[in-house]
Simulated scan of single mutants.
Amino acid sequence: MTILPSIVRDEYISYVRLEKNYSVYTVLEYENDVEAFLSFLEGEGLTDLNEVTYPVARLYVTTLYDNGLSRATISRKISSVRSFYKFANARYDINDNAFRALHHPKKEERLPAFFYEEEMEQLFSACVGEDKKSLRDYAILEMLYATGIRVSELTSIRLGDIDNHLGIVMIMGKGRKERYVPFGSFAQSALDEFREKSRLLLMKQKEHDFLFVNLRGDPLTNRGVRHILNGMMEKASLHSKIYPHMIRHSFATHLLAAGADLRSVQELLGHSHLSSTQVYTHITKEHLRKTYMNTHPRA
C-alpha cells in the first residue's frame, strides 16, 4: 500500500514539534524544507516516497544549486529531508537509502561577522536616552552583549528568570535546555533603569511577565529586536549590515581575544559541541594577523 507523502509529512512535523520539542523556528524550517522537497517530487511526477532513488536525490541537490542557494542552506535541506526519511523508514518501512548515501556539500570557509569594541561603543552611545524607548533599547543591547544569548532567548526572558543578587539570568536555549548565564554591572544598571522607569509605562496596563515589551505593551518579538538594532545602526552611522547574531559573535570574539578559555565560552553560548565555538578562535587569530600586518614596522 502506497502511503501518501502528505500524510508522512504531517506526522513528521508533529513528531519534531511534540516529541523532539524543537523550537517554533526550527519546526518551521523543517516544515518548509520537507514541503519544498515534496513539491520537487510532484514536479518530477513521483507520488511514492519509495520511488526516490539516489539519482533522484542527486537531481534534487542539483536543483538547489541551480536556484542559487548557499552551501550551508543546501546542507540544512539535505539534513531535513534525511531526517524526514529516517522517520518514514521507522514508521512505514520506507526505503531511506537515497538520502542516507548523500554527502553534504563542503562548507564554505566564511567566518562570522562581528563588531570591534569601538563599534560596540558607538552602538551603545547611539541609544543613550532617558525616554522609555531609549531605556528599553539600551537594556536590550546591554543584555545581548553582556550574555551572548540568542535573540530568541532574549525575547523569552521573564521577570522571574533574573537573579539580581547573583547577577545571573536563566536562559531557555535550543532543545529546551536551561542554562544560567552571568551578566555584569553595566547590564545590571541598564536593567534596573528599564524596569524602574520604562517597563510599566510601556506595558499600558497589560498583564504578562515577559521582560522586554514593544511599544504596545506586548512581549517583544525577534523581528522587533531586529528592527531596534537596525535603528541603532542608523543612529550610530555604522554602515555595515547588522543582524542580531553579530552581537553574539562579538561577545564570543571579545572574550576569547581577552584570554577566556574555549570551554567557558562554549558553556556561556550554550553550544552542545565545542566545534561550534572553535570558529571564534579563527576570528581572533585573523584579527591578530591583521593588527600585526597593519602596525608592525617590518610586516
Rank of each mutant, 00 (worst) to 15 (best):
H254P: 07
A126P: 05
V56D: 08
S125E: 12
E193M: 05
Y92T: 12
S185N: 08
V213M: 10
F40T: 13
H271K: 12
R223C: 11
N230W: 13
H208F: 01
Y15T: 10
Y243H: 04
E153K: 12
F251Y: 07
R17P: 01
E234N: 08
E51P: 02
G231C: 03
L38P: 06
F84N: 09
H104W: 08
S75Y: 01
L202D: 02
N294E: 13
L268Q: 06
T291P: 10
I78W: 00
K86F: 11
L64P: 04
N294T: 09
S275T: 07
E31M: 15
D66V: 06
L274V: 09
E193L: 08
V81N: 05
I283C: 08
T26M: 05
V213F: 07
L102P: 00
R136A: 01
N21C: 10
L255E: 01
L111E: 00
N222R: 15
Y116V: 03
F210P: 01
P297Y: 07
Y15S: 07
L220Y: 02
N164F: 15
L144I: 01
S80A: 12
S156G: 14
N214I: 06
K235C: 04
L38Q: 06
D48K: 04
G148E: 00
L191G: 02
V265I: 09
R289A: 04
D209T: 12
S264Q: 06
F40Y: 08
F37I: 14
V61K: 02
S264P: 01
R136K: 08
I3D: 00
K235P: 00
K290T: 15
D93G: 10
A260R: 04
E119V: 04
L256F: 13
F212Y: 02
L159R: 13
K197C: 13
I283E: 03
I140T: 01
T281N: 05
H273C: 12
V34S: 07
K285P: 10
A126R: 13
E196G: 08
N230E: 14
R176V: 13
R298Y: 04
M203H: 06
H165W: 15
P297L: 03
L262D: 10
R263Y: 02
S6T: 00
E130S: 11
N164W: 15
S156T: 15
D131S: 03
N32W: 11
E196A: 12
E267S: 07
L269P: 06
L144N: 00
E178F: 11
A36D: 13
I247Q: 00
E121M: 02
Q122K: 14
E130K: 11
I94K: 01
S39T: 14
R71E: 07
S198T: 11
R110W: 00
R195E: 12
F84A: 09
T284P: 10
A113T: 09
Y85T: 03
H282W: 03
N294F: 09
H254K: 05
P55G: 09
N32L: 14
V27Q: 11
T284I: 13
I283L: 02
F115P: 01
Y292V: 10
F115H: 03
S79R: 10
